[in-house]
Simulated scan of single mutants.
Amino acid sequence: MSGRREEPTLLGAVLPGGVRWAEETEAGEPTAVPETGTSAGVPDAGGGASTRVPGAGTPTLVPEARGGPSTRVPEPNPSTRVPKAGEAPGLPEAGASTRVPRPRAEPAPLWLFAEEEALMARAVSGRRLEFAAGRRCAHRALAELGVAAGPLLRGRRGAPAWPVGTVGSITHCAGYRGAAVARSAHLLALGIDAEPHAPLPSGVREAVVFGPEEARLRELAARCPDIAWDRLLFSAKESVYKAWSGYGGDRLGFEDAEVHPYPRPYPRAAGRFVARLLVPAPAGPYPLPRVLPGRWLVREGLVLTAVAVPRPVPPPPYRTAPKEHL
């Protein structure tokens, strides 16, 4: 069960209590770093569409489908059928990593509801498999949260339209896919991101790192040279954008959030970060804080980051002192 293991899974190491997750890793999948302007397998706000690593001069996180690396899934069972809305597809247990064998041939997507499959009717095969893998993890996480099975369609800007009363996020990159969900009564916003642990391609760093972040990255690189701090900062900003978008925000550029990572003492390649929003937060009954908390982890050739914004606890109702009866 998620969140109750002595050795947490990858997502479990960066998520707080109350969040349910599901993830899959693929043995032997390469984590090559793409060239500038090509797809890096960076997901959209909450998953659902790939976002490329921008080249210099394009510092805006735009959640549009641009392809991405092909994610292979196991051969489907001939008896497996597409579930209908309201019917639970036989999903594996959530909260634990699933090692997926590499198939000999590229199969059709698994675990999609008919309405979800219709969203990918015109997509290329690699994109369909990527979409199916993310939705599969999302369904497992929602089932762990106790949410009734149903199609996870698209909402604003192509991000998943999470069931009422929940917040969530999806991520996928070469060899990895995951999803995290929580009750909106506990979290205002949630964003996760996974990246290959390697320095950003030439020319991309200048589009991602701004202001005092550059000096901070140089300081961190001198202290911990084994961490690709620029890639970690990029991933953290992706998680910030997903949390921002899920809360109802519109455009957020790389220059609109200032991220400061804080490492833990050796030997754990993990830590926390804070992201300071430099633009006004979206309006809402509970305003999004200007400083967002986050966690990061480097393990198994991946960088994972997460932003989970807790919902403020309302103060107790004011009560006057009881009157004395004479």
Rank of each mutant, 00 (worst) to 15 (best):
M1T: 13
S2A: 15
G3Q: 11
R5G: 05
E6W: 12
P8N: 10
P8V: 13
L11R: 00
A13R: 12
L15N: 01
G17E: 13
G18R: 04
R20D: 11
E23T: 05
E24W: 12
T25G: 14
T25C: 12
E26C: 11
E29K: 11
A32E: 13
T38A: 15
T38S: 15
S39R: 10
P43A: 12
G47Y: 00
A56M: 02
A56E: 09
G57S: 00
P59C: 02
T60W: 12
P63R: 03
P63T: 01
P69H: 09
V73G: 10
V73Q: 14
S79I: 00
A85L: 05
G90Y: 00
L91M: 10
L91V: 06
P92Y: 11
R99Q: 13
R99V: 08
P101H: 07
P103H: 06
L112I: 03
F113E: 02
R122Y: 01
S125Q: 14
A132V: 02
A132W: 02
G134K: 01
A141R: 04
A143R: 11
A143I: 00
A143D: 11
E144F: 05
G146I: 07
R154E: 14
G155S: 10
G155N: 10
G158S: 09
A159K: 10
P160A: 05
V164E: 15
G165S: 09
V167G: 06
G168F: 08
G168H: 05
S169L: 08
H172V: 02
C173N: 09
S184Y: 05
H186F: 02
A194H: 07
A194M: 04
E195K: 06
P199F: 03
L200K: 09
R205W: 02
E206I: 10
F210N: 09
P212W: 08
A215E: 15
R218E: 14
R218A: 15
P225E: 08
I227K: 00
A228C: 13
W229M: 06
S235W: 02
E238Y: 01
E238P: 06
K242R: 12
K242N: 07
Y247W: 10
G249I: 01
L252I: 06
F254H: 07
E258V: 04
H260L: 13
R264S: 15
G271F: 01
R272T: 15
P285R: 14
Y286E: 15
P287H: 05
P289V: 06
V291K: 11
P293R: 04
W296N: 02
L297S: 04
E300K: 07
G301K: 08
L304H: 05
V309Q: 04
V309D: 04
P316W: 05
Y318Q: 14
